[in-house]
């Protein structure tokens, strides 16, 4: 199983957001309120650096370029025994994630790494 995968519903949302906002990226959040959830931004909007790790370059049908999925290194140290699936649920969202105004929210579902 890949480190990060995408459900069909999340892929559909990514395609739709890609159409409106251009190339996309994810950064997995930690902390309170809307944390512990993936944030979706226009690619390059969130500046990754040496404290981050690129977990996956997601291939999504209908999206020309790969969608990078990032997490802070320190957080990944605590997550690396699991694999992640990006899903989407109805919700209000928050943070500056692109999908929130659509009434939906990306969500991570986790599994133990084989």
């Amino acid at each position: 199983m890949p480190v990060v995968s995408v459900t069909p519903a999340a892929a559909e949302l990514i395609r739709s957001l890609r159409g409106r906002h251009g190339p996309l990226m994810f950064h997995q959040s930690g902390g309170c309120c809307d944390g512990s959830a993936p944030m979706c931004f226009p690619a390059g909007e969130f500046r990754t650096g040496s404290s981050d790790v690129l977990l996956a370059s997601l291939a999504v049908d209908g999206v020309t370029e790969p969608v990078e999925f990032w997490m802070s290194k320190s957080q990944w140290e605590l997550w690396k025994h699991t694999t992640l699936t990006v899903d989407v649920v109805p919700g209000r969202g928050s943070g500056f994630s692109l999908e929130a105004p659509e009434g939906v929210r990306f969500l991570i579902r986790s599994h133990l790494a084989p």
Partner: peptide, 9 residues
């Protein structure tokens, strides 16, 4: 007040 990714942003 919120989470780390938005905090960094």
């Amino acid at each position: 007040t919120g989470e780390t990714t938005t905090g960094r942003l």
